[in-house]
Amino acid sequence: MILGHQIEKIIAGFGATHVVWVPDSTLGAWEEALEASASFELLRVCREGEAWPLAAGLYLGGKSPLVMMQTTGLFESGDALRNALFDLRIPLFALIGYRSYLLKDSPDTARKFAEPILDAWGLSYELINGPEDLPKLVAHHRACRIAGKPGVGLIAEGRG
């Protein structure tokens, strides 16, 4: 399980100025650490469809936002994502909580559709199973930034 102070350090290392988020039960455990960060500001939105244009506005204003939400929020906010990443061509990076990924044989449709949806959007993603994978997240973020492309870190969720 990735702890709040661990992910805060990673996001700070990204150079993020803002984290725009709608939490779930896994990401939500990071709230205290994210809110206490001296490196970035945590911004709450009511629904995931707000997160992408808000982050796009921050980017246009010269900041370096990161978007954080669950796969269900990814599904909900598809049109906002489409517009920000593909119409506006803003290379936002997101951490997406991969609901039920760690529950083998889970019937959760949020698990079933997560990767096909990311593939359909053509988004480059890296699966992060736990703290041991955080170097992969750092490398993926760096690669996306160098390429000037959006990207996703998929945070495995569902372990009891």
């Binding site: 707000e50 992408w52 244009p53 506005g57 921050l58 980017y59 246009l60 204003g61 010269g62």
Partner: peptide, 13 residues
């Protein structure tokens, strides 16, 4: 999304 985009600019600037 316009309101959210503009709010992001306002926060950034």
């Amino acid at each position: 999304g316009g309101l959210s985009l503009a709010l992001g600019i306002a926060i950034a600037r």
